[in-house]
Simulated assay, not measured.
Amino acid sequence: MVELKSTITCPKCGYKKDEMMPTNACEFFYECENCKTTLRPLEGDCCVYCSYGAVKCPPIQVGSGCC
């Protein structure tokens, strides 16, 4: 079962927000609602959910690799 809800934590200000992950695309950019910092995936990660989310993106969850 793939979990689509993930909590993203901003590394700059610590703000947390629950988001629904898309199943058909990766998110390479995410703007923090609190401090307006644009988050990008860390080196080696395929999307912002893999870098800053409590739950990895759907393709990683099912073992099919990056989106």
Results as ranks from 00 to 15, higher is better:
residue 38 T to R: 10
residue 54 A to S: 15
residue 53 G to D: 03
residue 37 T to I: 09
residue 8 I to Y: 01
residue 19 E to F: 06
residue 12 K to Y: 12
residue 46 C to F: 06
residue 27 E to L: 04
residue 44 G to A: 15
residue 41 P to N: 05
residue 37 T to Q: 11
residue 15 Y to E: 04
residue 62 V to T: 14
residue 34 N to S: 07
residue 40 R to M: 09
residue 43 E to M: 13
residue 16 K to R: 08
residue 52 Y to S: 02
residue 36 K to L: 10
residue 26 C to P: 03
residue 39 L to A: 10
residue 18 D to G: 05
residue 32 C to S: 05
residue 48 V to S: 02
residue 58 P to K: 02
residue 47 C to P: 04
residue 50 C to F: 04
residue 30 Y to M: 03
residue 39 L to Q: 12
residue 30 Y to R: 01
residue 5 K to Q: 09
residue 6 S to V: 07
residue 39 L to Y: 08
residue 58 P to F: 02
residue 65 G to N: 12
residue 16 K to Q: 10
residue 5 K to F: 07
residue 61 Q to R: 10
residue 40 R to G: 08
residue 5 K to D: 06
residue 24 N to D: 05
residue 52 Y to K: 05
residue 29 F to Q: 07
residue 13 C to E: 06
residue 17 K to T: 08
residue 21 M to R: 00
residue 54 A to H: 13
residue 33 E to W: 05
residue 64 S to H: 13
residue 67 C to V: 06
residue 58 P to W: 01
residue 44 G to N: 15
residue 48 V to C: 09
residue 11 P to E: 13
residue 1 M to E: 13
residue 64 S to C: 10
residue 21 M to Q: 00
residue 33 E to Q: 07
residue 49 Y to K: 04
residue 25 A to D: 00
residue 26 C to W: 01
residue 41 P to S: 10
residue 49 Y to I: 07
residue 41 P to Q: 03
residue 23 T to F: 02
residue 58 P to D: 04
residue 39 L to W: 11
residue 48 V to D: 00
residue 12 K to A: 14
residue 65 G to W: 13
residue 40 R to A: 09
residue 15 Y to T: 08
residue 3 E to C: 10
residue 57 C to G: 09
residue 32 C to F: 05
residue 14 G to T: 09
residue 7 T to F: 04
residue 25 A to M: 02
residue 55 V to T: 15
residue 38 T to H: 12
residue 26 C to M: 03
residue 47 C to F: 00
residue 12 K to L: 12
